[in-house]
Amino acid sequence: MDRVRQPKTPKKLIPVIRDEDTKRLLDGCRGRSFVNLRDEALIRLYYSTGARLSEVGNLMLDDVDMNTESVRFHGKGSRDRRVRFGPETARAFSRYLRARAKRRGADQVPNLWLAERGARPLLPNGIKVRLKRLGLAVGVDGVHAHRWRHNFAHEWHRAGGDTGDLMLLLGWTSEDMPRYYGASAAAERAQESQTRIRIGERV
């Protein structure tokens, strides 16, 4: 067995969801209905925090702090962390929370996200199905929450962000994860450098 070579497993780059696709999804949520406001807040939170499907889906009302524009995520291994979100997400949250407060029986449900009908929570699996349907409606394939997590890490690496800070924000304990997620950013930077070199050769 010492002489047998281990098979090489192919390493694929992490697929990211581009900003233009996120914009198309947000455009598909335009409107003043409860569902429109909820879906916009969901998408913006995934985009601005890079949180896991379950972390966003299992949020309670008490986890949201509008004063600091932040949420408390309950991560893997019972590790909580507080993450801030941007002003656009804050505005989307404010609109959703006002609409939520008007729902009959909503004050009896501790979960942040409510289903379209009745005072029932919208759980992670329901969010997964909803995101897929939104993607199909606007022509964006393969929409799921983890792609925004990929995108968050990708853009963080492209901007030269600190790996330790990224681990704290995304709730990672192993440095293998940021290296894995950073591969796509490294490949993109290499392609951009190659393009600049080629342009220089033509001058």
Rank of each mutant, 00 (worst) to 15 (best):
R147K: 12
D141F: 13
G164S: 10
R158G: 04
R196D: 09
I199N: 10
W148F: 15
A159H: 11
T195C: 07
Y180W: 12
E192M: 05
R189D: 09
R179P: 03
G161W: 03
A190M: 04
H154C: 05
L170F: 02
Y180N: 10
H150T: 09
W172K: 01
G161M: 07
T173N: 09
H144M: 05
L169I: 11
D165P: 04
F152A: 04
E192G: 01
L169R: 11
W156L: 10
G182T: 07
G161I: 04
H157W: 13
W156Q: 10
T173L: 07
A185Y: 00
W148T: 04
Y181V: 00
D162S: 14
S184T: 14
G160R: 03
W156H: 10
Q191D: 08
A186S: 15
R198I: 13
L170Q: 00
E188W: 04
E188L: 01
G160C: 05
S174P: 01
V143W: 05
G142L: 11
A183K: 09
M177Y: 09
A159C: 07
M167C: 08
L169K: 11
L166A: 01
G182S: 06
T163S: 14
A153T: 02
G171S: 10
R149W: 02
A183F: 05
D162V: 14
L170I: 00
A153H: 02
G164I: 08
P178L: 04
A183Q: 13
E192W: 01
E188Q: 07
T195P: 03
T173D: 10
R147G: 01
H144A: 06
D176Q: 13
L168N: 13
R149V: 00
E155G: 07
W148M: 11
H144Y: 13
E192P: 00
A183N: 07
G182I: 06
N151K: 15
R189K: 12
T163C: 13
L166H: 02
N151E: 15
R198A: 15
S193V: 07
Q194D: 08
A145L: 10
G160Y: 02
W148D: 03
A159K: 11
R196C: 03
A187Q: 08
D165Q: 15
W148L: 06
I199K: 13
I197R: 14
V143E: 05
A145E: 08
L170H: 00
S174Y: 02
R149S: 02
V143M: 07
Q194S: 10
W148R: 05
P178V: 02
E192H: 03
R189S: 08
A190K: 00
R198L: 15
L166Y: 03
S174H: 03
R158I: 09
A183G: 08
M177I: 11
E155R: 14
R147L: 07
S193G: 08
S193C: 08
F152S: 04
A187I: 01
T173Q: 12
E192R: 03
N151C: 11
H157D: 12
E188S: 06
T195W: 10
G171F: 06
E155I: 11
L169G: 07
H146R: 03
R158H: 06
H150S: 09
S184H: 08
V143N: 05
S193E: 12
H150M: 08
A190Y: 00
G142E: 15
W172H: 05
W172M: 02
A186L: 14
G182A: 05
E175F: 13
A187Y: 01
R179N: 11
Y180G: 09
